[in-house]
Amino acid sequence: MLIEILQQTINGLAIGGVYVLIALGLTTVFGILGIAHFAHGSVSMFGGYLTFFLVTSQGLPLIAAIPIALVVGFLLGLLIEIVAYRPVRNANHINAFIVALGLTMMVEGINLQLFGHEQVVIPTGLSKVFRLGGITVPELRIYVIIAAIVLVAAMMLFVEKTKTGQAIRAVAENRDAAILMGVNVKSIPLIVFGISTSLGVAAGIMVGALFAIAPGIGEGFVVKGFAVLILGGLGSFPGAILGGTVLGITESIAAGFISSAYKDVIAFVVMILVLLIRPQGLLGRSP
């Protein structure tokens, strides 16, 4: 029984890492700019598709394709901010909401046109399996978990320790005060979208390597990302990390010990229960 619990926890950690990265991107955009960026899932999958294309069609090694995809993701984030969201920044919130929905359909369509309708799996060549006691962990999942930890740590360091990170936090806390303190608030949304999209691309690569990318997959992940956002607490980075991990492990344990048919339902029931006790989310601040 203990081995099964540990195995399910490890199973859930990898997918939890993906949720964390998706949610971090979403929480950055939502917490700082107040935009529910629904296209985040589709943009993430674009990153996965791009990596697949670079590896399989251009013959690049995966280790070279990943940084290229992350940089393209960053630039794509800038483009999305300038073209899609900047024009509606000062308009009613519903405008940004509609733009987000339209952008989702557009990116899904672009993915379909550029990469086709078939599911793709990013080849990694990592097929070793490590065994410890009765627990088995595939090499690929270990790398995914490590990569997620490194990216989360880098993001936290950036936000906490750099001047740009401090400026982002200042805008998130109080935009008017940040302007008075001399923060260049025009560049903040650009940086936020760039970083958020890069994190999403990293998540897309992980999904493509662990599982598969196919049309429509991104939508499912963005729903989970928003669930994590609410579970962890809106706009809270530590909340997104905790929420993503909890959701991944809960899904795995629910499928293993209750029923695989209801794993999504059970995960959302847990989320609702948490919110009943802590309406602000696990690590969110009380209003």
Binding site: G12, I217, E251, F257
Partner: peptide, 11 residues
């Protein structure tokens, strides 16, 4: 649409 079947297989 599922691609992660490790929870079911672990069970």
């Amino acid at each position: 649409r599922d691609r992660d079947m490790t929870p079911q297989l672990t069970k």
